[in-house]
Each structure stands twice: as C-alpha cells, then as structure tokens.
C-alpha cells in the first residue's frame, strides 16, 4: 500500500452549513504535512471524512488508494488521533490500548512498546480519567502508533502540551516522517508547525487556499523586500528605482525596497556611493505567511458573499 492520502473534491453539508466545499489535496509519504486553517475551516471534518467517520456528500477520500471503510485491520494502515479526550475515564491507559490492540489482532507486547514510545511507562496502569491533556495527547499518539501504520493523521496534537511536550512532539513527528510515513497534522496555529512541516495545506471555509511546500510559501510571502536605512534616502530611492525596484518611505531615514534582492541593493548603493547604515533582507515567518493567506481568504469570501447575495 502506498503511504498517501488523497482527498478529491470532497463536499459535505451539515444542514444548510457548507462544511467542505470541494476540498482537494494529497499527502505524500516521507514528510510532515501541516493542515492549517482557522477554526471552522473544515480541518476536523476533512479528517473525519478521510477516516470514514463522516460520509462525504460527493468526492472521495482515499488512503493508499482505498476508502477507509474498506480497510481490514485499519489501524495497521492508518493511525489517527482525533480527540484526546475520547477515553473511558475509569479504564487505565494500558487497558485502553489493550482493547484497541485486541481489535486488530495485536498483542499486549505491542501495547507495552507504544506505551514506552509515548513516554507513558509510569502512568500506564492509572485511570485515564485522571490524565492531564498533555498525557491524553501522548496516549492518543500511542494509540495511533499501535498498528505501526504507514499513514498517520493527528488533529491538533499540540493542544495542551507544555513547552517540553511541544519539543517532544515536533521531534517525534519528524522521526515518523523520516521513517517514510505520510504524516498529516492539523493545527490552527501555524507557528506550531514551524520547523516541523515540510509541506502545508492551508484551508479556509471548506476549501484549500494554498497547497505548497513551506520553503516556497515563505519565499512567496517574503517577496524580495529589503529594509534600508540611509542618511540620503532620496538619493538611494532614485538609484534603486532606476534599477527597477519599488521603493516606499517608512520614515525619515528608512525605506522599504521591493523587487531587488538584498545583495543587489548593496551593490547598487556601493556603486553610486550612496551612504547606508543598514540593509536587512526581510524573512517572513510561517505565521505571517498564514495570516497573509487567510486575510486574502477572508476578502475572497467577502466578495463571493456579495455575489451570492445579488
């Protein structure tokens, strides 16, 4: 089975609310794919459709080319963490994993392995009802790993984790992807995925806004903006505009230059002997990139809203 998730034009309504409006993307193996969007964008619904919990009105969601509901021993194909709170409070962590293991024909030995892997060795025989949210997340991760699946789907796994836990989770996700698994991780906070996800699918209002590698997304949002401090801002602006840049004054001695890379700015200023005290290439954060995208999405929605009102 190929370790992929393919979502093709999935539509889903709940009553009059459109939850998924033509959702399409593909998750490739060997990397962490971030699944990002504001609350209510349809992330969880998409995951539930992929996992066969919700039925799509149209479109398809396939795991390794097959619908989830057709999988035998599905936990050997897909590990999922949807809701860390979905536990019988009076059942111990180990017993929670044990029934799951039994349902897939796995042994108690495998249960003990994933307990160690998730760092729950000390608390495995305690009732899950007394667990903190962070411990529940770890238990959910252990459950997802139980069948050693090639595809892993995690809904907001960073929720409730302390800083140590967030570091642990990031390393852990990287490790899983490094083993060649397809890892889909949703979050409503782009910053959580920084340095973890290699690819992001950004969604808003039930459809994909951007489906791109993190590197390209950052480059696009950063553009070639450069911040320049100079005692001769007018001269600097003239030189750079002649070279094709767009220049905007920020204050008395600060300019924002776009359209030229920082190295070229320095070379030009040097050649024309324009004094400058600082040239800073602007690096966007993933957060900014996300804000940019979702802002656009909001505007786009506002437009379509007017159209449909007509």
């Amino acid at each position: 089975m190929r370790a992929t998730i393919e979502v093709n034009d999935v539509r889903k309504r709940f009553g009059s609310t459109v939850a998924l409006d033509g959702m399409s993307f593909t998750v490739e193996p060997g990397q962490v794919t971030g699944f990002v969007g504001p609350n209510g964008a349809g992330k969880s619904t998409t995951m539930r459709v992929i996992l066969g919990l919700d039925a799509a009105d149209s479109g398809s969601a396939l795991i390794g080319g097959r619908p989830y509901r057709s999988l035998r021993s599905p936990l050997l194909h897909v590990g999922a963490l949807l809701d860390a709170g979905a536990l019988q409070p009076s059942r111990s962590a180990r017993n929670h994993l044990l029934w799951l293991a039994h349902s897939q024909g796995l042994t108690a030995g495998r249960v003990d392995e994933v307990i160690e892997r998730a760092g729950l060795g000390q608390v495995a025989r305690r009732k899950a009802g007394g667990f903190s949210l962070g411990m529940r997340q770890r238990l959910g991760i252990a459950a997802a790993l139980l069948g050693d699946p090639p595809v892993i789907i995690l809904d907001e796994p960073f929720n409730g984790l302390d800083p140590d836990g967030i570091v642990w989770m990031r390393e852990f996700l990287g490790e899983l992807a490094g083993q060649g698994r397809a890892v889909l991780v949703s979050s409503h906070l782009m910053s959580e995925l920084q340095d973890t996800a290699a690819h992001v699918v950004v969604v808003g209002r039930g459809r994909v806004i951007a489906d791109t590698s993190v590197a390209r997304l950052l480059a696009e949002v950063s553009g070639d903006r450069v911040t320049l401090r100079s005692t001769a801002p007018q001269e600097a602006a003239r030189v750079l505009e002649q070279a094709g840049a767009t220049v905007a004054a920020v204050d008395r001695d600060t300019l924002t230059v776009s359209g030229l890379p920082a190295e070229r700015v320095v070379t030009l200023l040097g050649r024309y002997a324009v004094p400058f005290s600082e040239v800073t290439a602007h690096r966007a954060t993933l957060e900014e990139a996300y804000m940019n995208l979702t802002r656009n999405a909001v505007e786009y929605r506002a437009t379509t809203g007017q159209e449909s009102a007509r």
């Binding site: 539930r48 996992l51 066969g52 919990l53 989830y68 509901r69 057709s70 999988l71 599905p74 936990l75 999922a80 949807l82 809701d83 709170g85 979905a86 536990l87 019988q88 409070p89 799951l100 349902s103 897939q104 459950a143």
Partner: peptide, 18 residues
C-alpha cells in the same frame, strides 16, 4: 452510551469501520 458521551465511539469505529 458511555462511548457516545466521551466520543469513544469514534475510536471504536476507527478500529472497526464495518
């Protein structure tokens, strides 16, 4: 109903989609 109350029914149905 305890499974519905806690959302555990989803875990059950993930383990057994049939």
């Amino acid at each position: 109903t305890a499974e519905y109350r806690r959302g555990l029914i989803r875990t059950t149905l993930l383990a057994s989609p049939r």
